[in-house]
Nucleic acid binder design. Sequence first.
DNA 1: TATGCGGCCTGAAGGC
DNA 2: TGCCTTCAGGCCGCAT
Length: 277
Amino acid sequence: MPELPEVETVRRGLNQLTLGRKITGGEVLLPRTLAHPFSLVEFDRGIAARAIKCWNRRGKYLLATLDNGSTLAVHLRMTGQLLWVNADTPLAPHTRLRFYFEGAKELRFIDTRTFGKIWWIPAEVAPERVITALQTLGPEPLGHDFTPEAFYSLCRRSRRPIKTFLLDQTVVAGIGNIYADEALFKSGIDPRTLANELTIAQTKNLTNAIIYVLGEAIDRGGTSFSDFLHVTGMNGNYGAVAWVYGRTGEECRVCGTAIDRVKLGGRSSHFCPKCQG
DNA sequence: TATGCGGCCTGAAGGC
DNA sequence: TGCCTTCAGGCCGCAT
């Protein structure tokens, strides 16, 4: 599922391929994919004849600024993919939305489980007013605001298991199940540990581990655990080096102990009972 | 206010 | 072989 590294990889790809390109129109194949506006006509009118100035990222949100100041936003959720293809490329199953571009190119939104969302927001409306979750997003983990001190201060106020805490996008933006497990392994912390029971040293280790695993995954072009594809259709390759995620029963790469799995907040957590004891 | 949990959704995998 | 159940998980809304 796309987390920060995958979304960042997609953003970089989109900036290479679509910048300055003019959208000629769109087609919404699954109406519930469109979160805003509700009217398909208004959406089509909003994006038509607009060029893409740049793609930015906030947490797991992709935000494109168009040449008239309006915003095109995309959240891939679990299985969403953006693919840049020639217009004559056969339509893949689960294609939910198509953006037509000059030069017989298309940007297609493909989403098996249909959780993904797309917004078009006019220039006179702040994106945060429509996508209200943007108002409460926590700091970017690879930004200057994400410090061990600030993170420790937040941890002190929560009695949730640290794994559940990390998945809260208001705490830190962009972390999902995969990288939460990986960062907790890297810092030697049991995912069931209550956030407010972490020591200063542990929160510092965890902060550094989050920054490390996210940075490494971006360098490798995102994970290939599940449905993630680069905009050109290439797989990322982080999955080959995962420490614990998706490795239940397999030997820990450090100590050889079998990787264990527990449910926390309805989500699977993978960990090494010895290294994270 | 903080926390937990169900629902949404579809394909894959496992059990019978 | 075919059917049924379970599982995967990001986010939202509701209940406690």
